[in-house]
Deep mutational scan, measured.
Amino acid sequence: GEEMDTAEIARQVKEQLIKHNIGQRIFGHYVLGLSQGSVSEILARPKPWNKLTVRGKEPFHKMKQFLSDEQNILALRSIQGR
């Protein structure tokens, strides 16, 4: 696969979550399948791509996919709003 700019992906995700008022817990649960603790760690201190294991890269693939389609963001927003 291609190398990803993990810091940039994390920054964009944080931006979207704040902009749409989506909590990290909801994002972690529905998008990444991770706990809030793992999510906040990944978003606060993303490791460089070449330092990640295959498993460590997974959340970034999912985040990139999440960012690529605004429908994903809107869907999360409606879950959050319940």
Rank of each mutant, 00 (worst) to 15 (best):
H29L: 10
K64C: 06
S40R: 13
Y30E: 12
H61W: 12
W49A: 07
S38Y: 09
G28M: 06
G56R: 02
V31A: 03
E3C: 08
K47V: 12
A10E: 01
S40P: 06
M4F: 06
Q36P: 15
I42N: 03
S68G: 08
I18P: 02
I9G: 03
Q65C: 08
V31G: 02
L76N: 01
E41H: 05
H61D: 07
P59F: 14
N21Q: 12
M63S: 01
I79P: 07
A44N: 15
A75V: 09
S78G: 13
T6K: 01
W49S: 04
E3T: 11
S38M: 15
S40M: 11
Q65F: 04
Q24P: 10
P46H: 02
Q24W: 14
T6P: 04
W49C: 13
I26T: 13
R55L: 11
N21P: 02
G23C: 11
R82D: 10
I42C: 06
G23S: 14
R82F: 06
K62V: 05
T53W: 03
Q16H: 09
H61Y: 15
G56C: 06
V54S: 12
I73D: 02
Q80D: 10
S78R: 13
L34V: 08
L32W: 01
G23I: 05
T6W: 01
V31N: 02
V13F: 00
F60G: 00
F27D: 01
D5A: 07
S35E: 13
Q65V: 09
V13A: 04
E41V: 04
V54M: 15
I18Q: 15
I22Q: 01
D5P: 06
K62I: 08
V31E: 02
L43F: 08
G37E: 15
L52E: 00
H29K: 13
F60C: 02
P48N: 04
A75F: 11
E70L: 05
I42V: 09
V54C: 11
K14M: 08
F27N: 01
R45F: 13
R25F: 10
V54L: 14
A7T: 11
F27G: 01
K62Y: 03
S35I: 05
Q80S: 12
K57Y: 03
D69S: 11
E3L: 09
K51Q: 15
A75I: 08
L43K: 00
E15H: 15
I73Q: 05
Q36M: 09
G23W: 06
K57Q: 14
I26H: 11
S68M: 10
L17A: 02
S78F: 07
P46Q: 04
G28F: 05
A10F: 00
F66N: 01
N21V: 03
G23R: 11
L74V: 13
I9D: 04
I22G: 01
D5M: 03
I22F: 04
I42Q: 03
P59I: 15
T6Y: 01
L52K: 00
K19W: 03
V39E: 04
G1E: 12
T6N: 03
M63N: 00
K14L: 04
V13H: 03
A10C: 11
K51R: 11
K51I: 13
P59R: 13
G81W: 10
N50M: 07
D5V: 03
L17I: 05
S38Q: 15
K14E: 06
P46W: 05
L52I: 03
V39G: 02
R25E: 15
L74E: 13
L52C: 04
K47C: 10
K47Q: 14
H29E: 14
K14H: 15
E2R: 07
F27Y: 00
A44H: 12
G1L: 12
G33F: 01
G28A: 13
M4P: 05
G28R: 03
M4C: 02
T53D: 15
F66Q: 01
A7H: 13
